[in-house]
């Protein structure tokens, strides 16, 4: 079964993703609350995809993405950044950090599911 690592310091965001994914997909969900924990969990859990917020305590999503992309163990895991930051500067920094896609909140749930299916299959 496909596994997604959801990284967000917002309990609400993690909860919405958990509810939607559990009802609409067969993906296994693991979560982390900041970039530092995301890096640790990514190495341990080996997820098929990481869905990550940017503005988080301890380590931002951008920093975490850069770390993940430099590590042989995790470099191939697609990272989708999902954030309230829609400014061009953040979008550019996001792609420069190595993310595969960049989405802004509030996200359209149906579109997010379609995107995940495009990466992971049904």
């Amino acid at each position: 079964m496909r596994k997604i690592l959801v990284v967000d310091d917002s309990y609400t965001a993690r909860l919405v993703n958990r509810m939607i994914f559990s009802q609409k997909t067969n993906y296994v969900l693991v979560s982390a609350v900041d970039g530092k924990e995301a890096v640790e969990r990514a190495k341990h859990e080996k997820p098929d995809l990481i869905l990550m917020d940017i503005i988080m305590p301890r380590m931002t999503g951008l920093e975490a993405c850069r770390v993940l992309k430099k590590d042989k163990e995790t470099e191939k895991i697609p990272v989708i950044l999902l954030t309230t930051r829609g400014e061009e500067q953040y979008v550019q920094e996001g792609y420069a950090s190595g993310c595969s896609d960049y989405l802004t909140k509030p996200v359209n749930d149906a579109e997010l599911l379609d995107l995940l299916k495009a990466y992971l299959g049904e």
């Binding site: 917002s10 309990y11 609400t12 965001a13 909860l15 919405v16 509810m19 909140k105 509030p106």
Partner: peptide, 28 residues
């Protein structure tokens, strides 16, 4: 999810943060 977050806030005493989180993440 919004309802669950508000309930969680009652235990953690962060109702204002919960309202902000709901509005930022789900409304924009």
């Amino acid at each position: 999810a919004a309802s669950a977050r508000l309930i969680e806030a009652l235990d953690h005493g962060d109702v204002f943060d919960a309202i902000a989180e709901i509005i930022a993440n789900l409304i924009g």
